[in-house]
Simulated assay, not measured.
Amino acid sequence: MARGGINKALVQKARAALLARGVNPSIDAVRVELGNTGSKTTISRYMQELESTDARPQADPDRLSDELTAMVSQLLKRVLEEGNVALVQERLAHQQNTAAKDQLVSELEAELKKTKQVVASRDVALAAQAEELRTSQSSLQAEITRNARISQSCADLELRIQEKDEQVRSLEDKHAHARDAMEHYRSAIKEQREQDQRRHETQLQQLQQETLQLQQALMVRQDELTRLNRDNERLLSEARQHSKLAYQSQEAMKRLEGDLGVANMATARAEGAKEMLQEQLVAVKNANEVLSSEISSLRANTVKLSQELADTTQALEVCRGDQPDMAGES
């Protein structure tokens, strides 16, 4: 929107702004700075007054080079063009704002008209409601009398309701007692079941421990049986060796007895050898008897351990058979 007029203060402000930006404060430049308002004659008069009072030396445009003058002219032309474009945009925006405000005023006037019509219709409705109120007041008196009779009936009904409430409370108390007894019974059953379950778990753990002990005992018995079998094999091997030695001794004795007739000439020398051989033979026989006794003892121990192993295996199988039954019962 254009200004209504200019004065010396506005021209001075525009001139100072141009000088601060390094622009020559010509009449056209000042007019552009003022928004293209004011006559050039008025601006020129104010500029002369300001220049006469400004003690600062003024730059002479004639001192500028042609290239700089051309650049300044182009910048001035561009500033004027951009200023005119901005002014056109501002004017267009102002026109749009004015049209929008006119539209808003029209809408507000229409709304005000509708509001007046609504108020008039409400006045008519208010008069009708006042008439209805008078009619309602007359009906209210009749209803008050009727309500008095209904209140008496309600009092009677309340007495009967209180009696019913007493009966209901009595039934609720009985129901509460029955529910408490049921809860107590359920708690007792639950506690008994938990005790049975704990006892069953304890028994199951004991059986598992016994089974583990039996398995360990079985492993120990198996180790002992293995060791005894090894000892038995060793003793049998030694017995075979002793038997072999005894057999060899017997063969040697037979050979010696066969050679006895031939060795009559060396009787003195052979008697000593004979006695020694007889002592060795006795020792070998004694050793054979000891080995035979040990072998018999080992065989008896082997039979006994085999029986204990069979009994332990059977007991372990029985325990294993009882565990699934107890698991099914839990």
Rank of each mutant, 00 (worst) to 15 (best):
M1F: 09
A2N: 08
A2W: 03
R3P: 00
R3Y: 01
I6F: 06
I6D: 01
N7S: 05
L10W: 00
V11D: 00
Q12I: 05
P25D: 13
D28T: 13
D28S: 15
S39Q: 03
K40W: 12
T41F: 06
I43R: 00
Q48F: 03
L50C: 04
T53V: 14
R56M: 10
Q58P: 14
A59C: 11
P61C: 04
P61E: 05
D62L: 06
S65T: 05
E67D: 06
L75W: 03
E81W: 12
G83S: 14
V85P: 05
V88N: 06
Q89I: 12
Q89S: 10
E90H: 01
R91F: 01
H94Y: 12
Q96L: 09
A100H: 04
A100W: 05
L104D: 09
A110K: 04
A110E: 07
K114P: 01
K116V: 08
A120W: 00
S121E: 12
A125L: 09
A125D: 14
A128S: 11
Q141M: 03
A148W: 10
R149S: 10
I150H: 13
S151F: 12
S151M: 13
Q152K: 07
S153H: 09
C154P: 11
L159H: 06
L159D: 02
L159N: 09
I161R: 09
E163N: 07
E163W: 14
K164S: 09
Q167T: 04
S170T: 08
H175F: 14
H184P: 01
S187R: 15
K190E: 09
E194A: 12
D196F: 11
Q197H: 08
R198W: 07
H200Y: 03
H200T: 05
T202G: 14
L207F: 03
Q213Y: 04
L214H: 07
Q222I: 13
E224C: 09
L236D: 00
R240C: 07
K244L: 07
Y247Q: 11
Q250F: 02
R255S: 04
L260D: 08
A266C: 07
T267K: 11
T267Y: 13
R269W: 05
E271V: 02
G272T: 14
E275Y: 09
E275H: 10
M276V: 12
M276E: 06
M276I: 08
L277V: 04
V284P: 00
S292W: 06
S293K: 08
I295E: 14
L298K: 05
V303F: 15
L316W: 02
V318L: 13
D322F: 05
Q323L: 15
Q323Y: 10
A327I: 03
